[in-house]
Simulated assay, not measured.
Amino acid sequence: MQVAVWDTYVTKKDGTIMHFDIIAPTEIRDAAVIYNYGKEYLKTKGLENTSLTSKECLFCHIETAKPQWEKDIRQKGYFIYEMENCE
């Protein structure tokens, strides 16, 4: 399965930068859909009113999905790869 990786940086309430990737099937080309995936994830972190636009989230590259991502992609349509300050 080929996936698109969207590099995302969001400023948290305490001023730190949260860095994560939104990983979705390459067939999803509508950035608004990707942003909505990111907003769903941000709600789980208590950041439901955080802006998520092309300023914070940009297409990065395409790669082959890792096995641990595929379950979430099949169930939710996307996978979030947490990198920095996502706790």
Rank of each mutant, 00 (worst) to 15 (best):
M1Y: 07
Q2C: 05
V3E: 03
A4G: 15
A4W: 03
V5G: 02
W6V: 07
T8P: 02
T8V: 06
T8S: 09
V10Q: 03
T11Q: 15
K12M: 14
K13W: 06
D14G: 09
D14H: 08
G15S: 09
G15I: 04
I17K: 09
M18L: 15
M18N: 05
H19V: 04
D21Q: 05
I22Y: 01
I22S: 02
I22Q: 00
I23G: 01
T26A: 02
R29D: 08
D30S: 04
A31Q: 14
V33N: 05
V33D: 07
I34P: 02
I34D: 00
Y35H: 13
Y35I: 13
Y35F: 15
N36I: 07
K39A: 15
Y41M: 09
Y41N: 07
L42A: 03
T44M: 08
K45L: 05
K45Y: 04
E48L: 11
E48I: 09
T50Y: 01
T50M: 12
L52N: 03
T53V: 12
T53P: 07
T53Q: 05
K55D: 15
C57I: 14
L58N: 06
L58F: 05
F59R: 02
F59L: 08
C60K: 03
H61G: 03
H61K: 12
E63M: 12
T64S: 15
A65P: 12
K66V: 12
P67F: 01
P67I: 00
P67H: 01
W69Y: 12
D72W: 01
I73A: 00
I73V: 13
I73G: 04
Q75R: 10
K76A: 05
Y78T: 03
F79A: 03
F79W: 09
M83E: 14
M83Y: 07
E84P: 00
E84G: 06
N85G: 04
C86S: 07
C86K: 10
